[in-house]
Amino acid sequence: MKDLQEILAIARAVGWGAAEILQSYYHGTAKDSNLNVQYKQNEPVTVADVTVSQYILQKLQAALGREDFAYISEETYQSELNKDSQSGADWVWIIDPLDGTRGFIEKTGDYAVHIALVKEHRPVLAVVAIPEAEKLYYATKNGGTFVESRKSSNLLQLSFNNTTKHPEELTIVVSRSHRNQKLNYLLEHLPSYHQKSVGSVGCKITTILEQQADLYISLSGKSAPKDWDIAAPELILTEAGGKFTHFDGTALQYNTRDINQWGGLLASNGQHHETLCQQAQEILAQFERL
Rank of each mutant, 00 (worst) to 15 (best):
T29L: 05
Q278M: 11
Y39M: 14
L81I: 10
G103D: 06
G15L: 07
E188I: 01
N82F: 05
Q181M: 12
P97F: 08
T256S: 10
Y71M: 03
Y111A: 04
D110Q: 02
A62W: 00
E239T: 11
T206D: 07
L158R: 09
H178Q: 12
D110W: 00
R257V: 15
S200M: 01
E75R: 08
N154T: 15
S197P: 15
K119Y: 10
L156Y: 02
S159V: 06
K135R: 14
V50Q: 13
L235D: 04
H272Q: 11
P191I: 04
A129R: 01
L136R: 03
S152F: 01
K182G: 04
T250I: 00
E20V: 13
V45W: 04
G144N: 10
G143C: 09
K141G: 09
Y216C: 15
L186V: 08
N42K: 11
L35Y: 06
I21R: 10
I217L: 15
N184G: 15
A11K: 04
I7K: 07
Y185A: 09
G144L: 01
L4P: 14
D90R: 10
T145H: 03
F287S: 06
Q212N: 12
L57T: 07
V198Y: 02
P167V: 04
S177D: 08
Q279G: 07
P225L: 00
F104D: 05
